[in-house]
Every structure is written in structure tokens, then in C-alpha cells.
Design a protein around this nucleic acid. Structure first.
Lengths: 206, 206
DNA sequence: CAAATAAGTGGCAGAGTGTGCCACGAGGCA
DNA sequence: TGCCTCGTGGCACACTCTGCCACTTATTTG
């Protein structure tokens, strides 16, 4: 199902390329409009008018209007799974996850302005806030699966792996919010410090 | 603003009592229908027909159809904040959160059948899955605030507190899913074991 | 106790999202 | 070149949610 079909679809040209062009253009237009007027003040019809596609087609690209916004989140999850899949052997699960989160951290720093805008947009709408609050369940399971495949002796149902992933992404979320909220001067070392809690627990003194 | 108005509203009777009756009845009807036919196959109009209220009134009670379902989640978050607010002094933040999560755990065990049904319903719809995936941001902040007020020397912006809360609720979520998925024979001790990772880190060997 | 006031309700119209269906046209294949 | 596949656009429709206004019923005031 997956790999072969994916590859052949990538190779085939022109029709699929045009499709991809339209998709990208749609995302760009939508984002510009969202930042200009706010998420709730932009209709699907507005986006379609500028992109020059039919509303019916929009919903073939994106199951929901919301999905245009949550695209970057999916991309960040992809960075994690890619990193896990490509990491050298012999590392502990905790080290693997920490390294992956650091990589996403670097991505965030590199795209700070863009992601800060995403955060602003996401805060405007009630529905978006939930979507932006964490890693979507689907992606989370994917991460657990990949991590499990790199961890001999631990199945993907192992609660320790699942807790590790949930905590790692949770820690990242806290850092992410602090950083984009402009509360951090030296972001990456702070992320390291926070990730250390995965191995040592949370250092709450009192 | 809050306390006085709240109290007077509680005392005043008849009109507000009827309102509350209707609200409760609406929730009951909605839940029965959801479990019978599935979330997506029940319209707001269906619910209103049996509850004998106008659709317009339904949306005065609930901002969204979804809110009828996510009500129990809010109740669990309330258990946490209540516990934190009423706990004896002198405990560490980690101990406070662990105890709170154990209490919610007991609640879940006591209402297992009901919550398993909730889980089923929540899995049916794409939108609901996101809502059910974790503690809503609003409630999460509330928990952090309450915890901070019980933790001398730690503001509500302290990243350690926020990480603690995120991890505690994350651990709980993993346990919750395992338990309602019927994968646990001895749920509460397992929850204890999982909560221990808050203080000691995740015990992933390899 | 009666009149004025406040507050919740129902009905209506409308905006907006998302889906099924079908015909059309342009890329892909023999 | 001619057939065929597949994405697209347009149409109609179901559904959620909101603003508005008239109506009824509880509550308060003189």
C-alpha cells in the first residue's frame, strides 16, 4: 500500500505536479489572509477566490478548513519520526527522543517569526486552540511506533515508551510556548535543561 | 464579580432551577442518542426534539454540540483543582499532583463503564478525537495556577511546574487509555508506578 | 396586589462548513 | 490518434451556529 504507491505518485508528473502547485498556493493564500484578517474573518470561499479553485476542490485538498493551519504541526511531527528513523543505533529511547526534540527545537528557532504568527492565528479560534495544543493523536502514535522499532525489547504498547513520548512532546510544548511568547533569551540550552527531566524527573524542590 | 453573583444565582429558584433541569435533561438525551446511533448520526435537532427545547435554546446552553460530550473531561479537571486546593500543606508539588491524579484515577475506576462509552463516542468523530486527546488548554492553565498557589517560591510561569502538570496529565492519559482499552487488570497500582516517573524519570532501560 | 421590569424561550433568516452526485475536460496510455 | 482515467467544477443539500425580534413567564418594585 504505502511505499510503492507513494513513490509512483511522486514520479508521475504534470497532473500531480499541478495538483501540488495548487495545494501549495492554497496554503500560502490562506495563511496570508488569516494573518491579515484573522482566522474567523476569512471564509473558504475567500481563499478559493484568490487561489482560483472551486470550494469543492478546496475540500478535496483539505478535509477541513482547520487543516490548512495545522499543516506545520504535522511537519514538526514528521521531523521527529524522520530523526528517529535515521538515528544511529545503540542510543537509549530517552536519548533518541531528546535528540529528536532538540532537532525540532532548532527548526522552531530557525522559523521563529513564521511560527509565532501561527501561534497568534491559532489562538484566535476556539477550535484551533485545541488543535494547536499538542501533537495530534495520530502523529503521536506514529512517533511511538517509530521509537519502538528502534528500541529492542519494547513493543509499541509498552507504557514506558508511550509515557516517554507524551512527556517529551509535553516538555517541548512548554518550551515552545515560552519561546514564542518571547520569554526566553537563550532558548536551546533551556530546552536541554528541560529535556533532562525526562531522565531525572521534574526538579520541583519544595 | 464572581462570588456574590454566583451565590445569588444559586439561591434564586424556579426559573434557574428549570433551566438547570433542561440542561441536565439535554445532556442525558444527547448521550443516549450518541451511544445508540453514533455522534455523527445525531443532529442537534434530534436532541432538541426529544428534550423538547428549541435548537436555538440548545446553543444557549452549549456553545457547540461538542461541548455536550466534553463535559465529563471538564469534571475530571475540576477534581484535580479541587484536590489541589484542599490538600494539606507541606507537600511537594510532585506529591500534590500525584495525589490529585490518583484521585481522578479512582474516579475513573468508579465510573469505568460510563467513561468507556465516552471513549467510544469520542473516537467516532474526527473533531471529537482532538478534544478528547488531552486536558483542554484552559483547564490546564487553571491547574497550573492552583498548583502554583500551593507551592511557595514558584510562580505560575515557572516552567518546572508547567512541565510537572503536563507530564502528570500525560502519564494519566496513557494510563486512562490503557485502562479503558481493557488492557489492565490491576489499574490503580499501575497508575502509582507510572506516576513515580514524575520524580524519577522514565525507566527506559536500553 | 398590581404594574413595571428583567430574563429566558422560540421562531425565523442567514452565513458558513462540509458532502454526495454528475457531467466535463484535460492528462495518461495503448 | 483514440480510448480511458482521474481531477475538477458546479449544483444541491444537510448541518452547525448566530443575530434578531416578538412573546411569555418569573421577579421586583411601588
Amino acid at each position: 500500500m504505502g511505499a510503492a504507491a507513494e513513490r509512483s505518485r511522486q514520479i508521475t508528473g504534470l497532473r500531480d505536479r499541478k495538483r501540488e502547485q495548487n495545494r501549495v498556493k492554497t496554503v500560502e493564500v490562506a495563511w496570508r489572509l488569516f494573518m491579515e484578517r484573522g482566522y474567523d474573518n476569512v471564509t473558504v470561499a475567500d481563499i478559493c477566490a484568490e487561489t482560483e479553485i472551486a470550494p469543492r476542490t478546496f475540500h478535496r485538498y483539505f478535509a477541513a478548513k482547520e487543516d490548512v493551519v495545522t499543516d506545520p504541526i504535522r511537519r514538526m511531527a514528521a521531523i521527529v519520526t524522520d530523526h528517529l528513523a535515521g538515528a544511529p543505533a545503540g542510543l537509549s529511547a530517552t536519548e533518541l527522543m531528546s535528540a529528536a526534540m532538540r532537532e525540532v527545537g532548532a527548526f522552531v528557532v530557525a522559523h521563529r517569526a513564521w511560527l509565532a504568527a501561527l501561534r497568534q492565528v491559532a489562538r484566535q479560534s476556539h477550535q484551533l486552540r485545541a488543535a494547536h495544543a499538542g501533537v495530534p493523536p495520530e502523529q503521536e502514535r506514529e512517533i511511538v511506533r517509530t521509537l519502538a522499532s528502534r528500541s529492542p525489547g519494547a513493543g509499541e504498547d509498552d507504557w514506558r515508551l508511550r509515557v516517554l513520548v507524551v512527556n517529551a512532546t509535553g516538555v517541548f510544548r512548554v518550551w515552545y510556548d515560552d519561546y514564542l511568547g518571547a520569554r526566553l533569551d537563550d532558548p536551546l540550552p533551556r530546552l536541554d535543561e528541560m529535556l533532562a527531566t525526562l531522565a531525572n524527573g521534574v526538579p520541583v524542590s519544595e
